[in-house]
Design a protein around this nucleic acid. Structure first.
Length: 235
DNA sequence: GCGACAG
DNA sequence: ATCTTGTCGC
């Protein structure tokens, strides 16, 4: 499937160019619910390393609210953008676009393993992707990147607010009893309450919401087989 | 036994 | 940050 980008983009950016683009894109993030009907959610997980220019991406396309797996993609991309704090999304974006292009249908919502607006510059990977593709997006991270919060109660379903610079930028959500909470923030074209609700409705007794959980295991599987192949050729 | 998580 | 392995709690 051919992806429609909101405007022409190039990816051979220098970091100073990326900073400027980041400021522009951050202004375009919409944190209101577009009320689009959500039928297909793409869970997106990115595997990246500080010292490696290979970026792996796993995408799991699930129906919603049934949460049945429809399509899956794992792909690898050689990025040209260096590892710069706060600009990680510029390293990962082209890799994700390449992976998403392999889907046969366009998702209604991107559920990304990473921050949305809960990011030092207000443009985490989920927001960046959402704006570039003009699609609703949610950031759902396993750890906090920015802001302060009080721990939600230990029972599943408890939530508290993630606050930064006097603003509520996200939700800290206990998806399962006695496990570390998730950090949910709007990515694009969604508000905090709906982002939280959709993540909640996507959790099936595991810590991670199904689309991300499945994409994570796909990524792990792919890395495992890659390692086995490497060992076989170079014992 | 499975999932979370240490480090 | 990632991956492997072991341990713990449910």
């Amino acid at each position: 499937m051919k992806l429609e980008l909101r405007r022409p983009h190039r990816w051979d950016l220098a970091p100073y160019e990326a900073q400027q683009i980041q400021r522009e894109l951050a202004k375009e993030v919409v944190c209101a619910d577009a009320s689009d009907e959500i039928h297909w959610i793409a869970g997106i997980v990115i595997g990246h390393s500080r010292f490696d220019d290979r970026i792996q991406v796993a995408v799991a396309l699930l129906s919603f609210p049934e949460l049945l797996l429809s399509e899956q993609v794992v792909s690898e991309y050689r990025t040209r953008f260096p590892f710069v704090p706060d600009l990680l999304s510029f390293r990962e974006i082209p890799a994700i676009l390449q992976a998403l292009a392999e889907l046969t249908r366009l998702p209604d919502l991107l559920l990304v393993d990473g921050p949305g607006i809960a990011h030092p510059k207000g443009l985490g990977i989920a927001s960046h992707l959402g704006v570039v593709l003009e699609l609703p997006a949610i950031g759902c991270s396993k750890c906090n990147t920015v802001g302060s919060f009080v721990q939600p109660e230990v029972n599943a379903g408890s939530i508290t607010s993630l606050v930064w610079q006097g603003e509520i930028i996200g939700t800290v959500y206990r998806s399962k009893n006695r496990v570390a909470p998730l950090f949910i923030s709007a990515g694009h074209r969604i508000d905090r309450d709906n982002a939280t609700r959709i993540v909640r409705e996507s959790c099936q007794g595991y810590r991670l919401p199904e689309p991300i959980r499945i994409a994570s295991s796909l990524l792990n599987e792919a890395k495992q087989t890659a390692r086995e192949a490497a060992v076989a050729t170079d014992p």
